[in-house]
């Protein structure tokens, strides 16, 4: 676990210096929110309609911005043969996966933290259940990056990596996006944690399965 934290810290230090991934993710996410708020401007006065649309808009922004970030996650490791350098170290290969998952998750949380206030303003929401929305976003994001990090490693060595990642990732994250959108919708319409317990259970199971599977199969995805 210590080695994974070192890998995550190394990734974040590099990223905070260039802000390449962070800036592009953030700009993309904000553009999605702004475009949807303009498109659905006429519906802003209809709370029932907005309750159905807004959670989807939020997760579309998170998913697409996250995919953009994930596509760069292992591309950086391919430069100068850094991934091979890591593979030559006497560490368990799953440490690389865990470290990368942590750094990808942190970057996504930062983007989400900056996107949500803009979303609240543009969609005229008042979130009363902050712990509830934080829990849903945490579980949804963790599931997303657990799968995304594995597929990012898989697609990094392919020629069409930018196309390959979304093609592989988007169908696989449907089971996490659907409960996340439904739970977000319930929370935004003043629902309590109790009313989203089935979605939370689904998200936890999905997160656990993919995080464990990711660790087990990561070695084969980075094998020469």
């Amino acid at each position: 676990m210590k080695k994974s934290l070192y890998i995550a810290a190394k990734d974040l230090k590099s990223e905070f210096r260039t802000k390449q991934m962070l800036n592009s993710m953030l700009i993309f996410s904000l553009i999605v929110i702004v475009i949807f708020s303009i498109s659905f401007g006429d519906l802003l006065g209809q709370p029932d309609m907005m309750a159905k649309l807004a959670p989807g808009v939020l997760w579309v922004a998170f998913t697409f911005a996250g995919t953009l970030g994930l596509s760069r996650s292992f591309a950086g490791e391919m430069e100068n043969g850094c991934l091979e350098g890591l593979k030559l170290s006497p560490i368990d290969r799953s440490s690389i996966y865990i470290g990368k998952t942590i750094s990808n998750a942190v970057l996504m949380f930062i983007v989400e933290l900056l996107t949500i206030p803009i979303f609240i303003v543009l969609f005229n929401y008042n979130i009363s259940n902050i712990p509830g929305i934080a829990l849903v976003i945490f579980l949804g994001t963790f599931g997303f990056v657990s799968v995304g990090t594995l597929l990012s490693a898989l697609s990094a060595s392919t020629r069409a990596r930018e196309i390959m990642l979304p093609v592989l990732l988007l169908p696989l994250i449907i089971p996490v996006i659907i409960p996340a959108v439904m739970a977000t919708g319930t929370i935004l319409t003043d629902g309590g944690i109790g009313s989203i317990s089935s979605e939370i259970r689904l998200l936890i199971v999905y997160d656990l399965i993919f995080f464990v599977v990711g660790q087990l199969v990561f070695e084969y995805t980075v094998m020469d």
Partner: peptide
């Protein structure tokens, strides 16, 4: 037990 040097540097440019 092994150290490796290659034409690739295995170094992170931003560090």
């Amino acid at each position: 037990m092994i150290g490796a040097i290659s034409h690739e540097t295995y170094l992170y440019d931003e560090l």
